[in-house]
Each structure stands twice: as structure tokens, then as C-alpha cells.
């Protein structure tokens, strides 16, 4: 049994909030270069180069890549051989978010109530998903989620008879309808299986996998390739002004499901593929 004092979580979450909003991963730099090389539209290439320049500027000045620094979505993996001390874990995470968004000069975009709509002023509370795993560690992933791409995401409970073709139709329809609101080129997260809420979570988790990396299951990896090809034939392109690169990648996550169900969810991630993680 390992003891972790939750007070030690606060500075970690603070740092991850700032890092995720200002620095993009190596996979992103690789993906954007690949996109620039493949884009046929002149204006599209120009936009992709400006996005690269924007990311470089944000990294060197430790400034936000985008003003929508999101609601902080936090994935916690808690090893079952860990004993937490020193307070409540969720309180500590929220304190880390509060400090990170304040010290990092990040925008506070969280409202106290969906109908009263008053800004809480410190970007709390975060949205926290916890999974109990084997081991004696605590892993925290911070994935700030902006609204432009979130607002055009969705879930559909397909009939099993609609099969893979139904999934392709739904994903394509979502991409076409979203157009420029997602700030393309996007990472398209797709969840398949589970039930209503599980499939939405799968789609969000799919956004955490590094770009240009395929799913380990061959039939899912193949579907990712097929969807990516299809999406990049829509002509939507960078910022939806026309072009080849509508998506940087497509990631699918799957889970077992009920005999009568075929749930599918699409969660878009704008071109700023933001997440940062740490293990305690």
C-alpha cells in the first residue's frame, strides 16, 4: 500500500493545466507537417502554416494556443494499492485547476449553472473521470476541451442492422454538418459500443491517443483508415475554406455492447490537440 497525499496533486494539476494549453505534443508537430505536405489548396496550406506559427509562438511565450482554454476535463487512473491522505482528491484537483488557470493567464469559461449562467471566475469545477486500475500509482491527464468542437459532437443509438455502413454514414454526416465550427483540421474521436454514456466517454478518450497512431485491433485500425480517407474527401479542408486536410486523424475506441444496441458517438477535437499527463 502506497500513500499519496492529495496536497501533492495540486501543483501537478496546476502545471498540467498550463502545459496542456500552451504546448502541443511531438505527434502534433509531425501531423501538421504531414498535413502541409499533403494539402493541395494554397489558402489551406497557408492556414496550416499559420497554425504551426501560432503553436510555436504560444510555446515560446508560454501563452495560450487558443483563447478557448476550455473546461478542464480530467482523467484519473487510481491504482487500487494507493491510499489517499491529506484531504479529498477532487477538491485537490479543483484547487490545481483554480491555480493553473489563474497563474497561467488562461480564460475562465465555466459557469455555475447551465441556466443561471454566472461565471465561477476560476474555471472550476473540472469534469473528472476516475478509473480504478491495478498498481500503486495515480495518473492524471488534463485535457482542456473548447466549445467550438464540443458543441457539434453527438451520440446516436444505431440499430445493429445498420452495421459498419451506418457508423460511416453517421460520422460523415457529423463532419459535414460541423463544417468550420470545429476549427479543422480536427482529430475525430469515435466511440462504438457500450451504452449511451459509455459511448460518449469512449469518443472523448479516443482523443487522448497520440496522432498518427492506429488502434491495436486490426478491424478497428482499418475502419479508422477508411473513415479518415472518407472525411478528407469531403473537401471541407483547413478552417472549412476548401481543401484536402479536414482531419489530422481519426481515432476509434470500442467496448462490448448489448445484443440490441449499436451506439456510436463522435467527439471532435479542434486542431489544437491539447492534453498533458503526469504520474505520481
Amino acid at each position: 500500500m502506497k500513500e499519496i497525499n492529495v496536497q501533492d496533486v495540486i501543483p501537478v494539476v496546476e502545471r498540467l493545466c498550463i502545459e496542456s494549453c500552451t504546448l502541443l505534443g511531438e505527434d502534433w508537430w509531425q501531423a501538421i507537417d504531414q498535413a502541409i505536405a499533403r494539402e493541395e489548396s494554397t489558402i489551406g496550406r497557408d492556414i496550416l502554416s499559420q497554425l504551426k506559427e501560432n503553436a510555436r509562438l504560444a510555446a515560446t511565450t508560454s501563452s495560450a494556443i487558443c483563447q478557448d482554454t476550455g473546461i478542464a476535463v480530467i482523467f484519473v487512473e487510481l491504482g487500487q494499492d494507493v491510499r489517499l491522505t491529506g484531504g479529498n482528491l477532487y477538491d485537490a484537483i479543483n484547487e490545481g485547476v483554480r491555480r493553473g488557470y489563474t497563474k497561467g493567464y488562461l480564460r475562465k469559461s465555466v459557469l455555475n449553472d447551465p441556466l443561471i449562467r454566472k461565471n465561477t471566475g476560476d474555471n472550476t469545477p473540472a469534469i473528472i473521470h476516475t478509473h480504478i486500475v491495478n498498481g500503486d500509482f495515480l495518473k492524471i491527464t488534463v485535457a482542456p476541451k473548447g466549445a467550438g468542437s464540443e458543441n457539434v459532437s453527438g451520440v446516436k443509438m444505431l440499430k445493429p442492422s445498420e452495421g459498419v455502413e451506418g457508423i460511416k454514414r453517421y460520422v460523415l454526416q457529423m463532419v459535414e454538418e460541423a463544417g468550420g465550427n470545429t476549427c479543422p483540421p480536427t482529430l475525430v474521436g469515435v466511440g462504438i459500443g457500450g451504452d449511451l454514456e459509455e459511448v460518449a466517454l469512449l469518443a472523448k478518450k479516443a482523443l487522448l491517443r497520440p496522432l498518427l497512431q492506429r488502434h491495436p485491433l486490426p478491424h478497428i485500425a482499418q475502419l479508422e483508415e477508411e473513415l479518415l480517407t472518407m472525411i478528407n474527401k469531403t473537401g471541407i479542408g483547413p478552417q472549412a475554406l476548401g481543401g484536402r486536410i479536414t482531419a489530422l486523424d481519426v481515432h476509434i475506441e470500442v467496448y462490448p455492447t448489448h445484443i440490441a444496441c449499436l451506439p456510436v458517438a463522435v467527439n471532435f477535437q479542434c486542431h489544437a490537440v491539447r492534453h498533458a499527463e503526469a504520474v505520481l
Binding site: Q50, N54, I65, H271
Partner: peptide, 11 residues
């Protein structure tokens, strides 16, 4: 239209 997500550059 301004480039969505190019917040640091536009600033």
C-alpha cells in the same frame, strides 16, 4: 473570417 484557434498569433 479569422483563423480559428490562431489566438496567440492574432493577439
Amino acid at each position: 473570417l479569422a483563423i480559428g484557434g490562431a489566438g496567440a498569433l492574432l493577439a
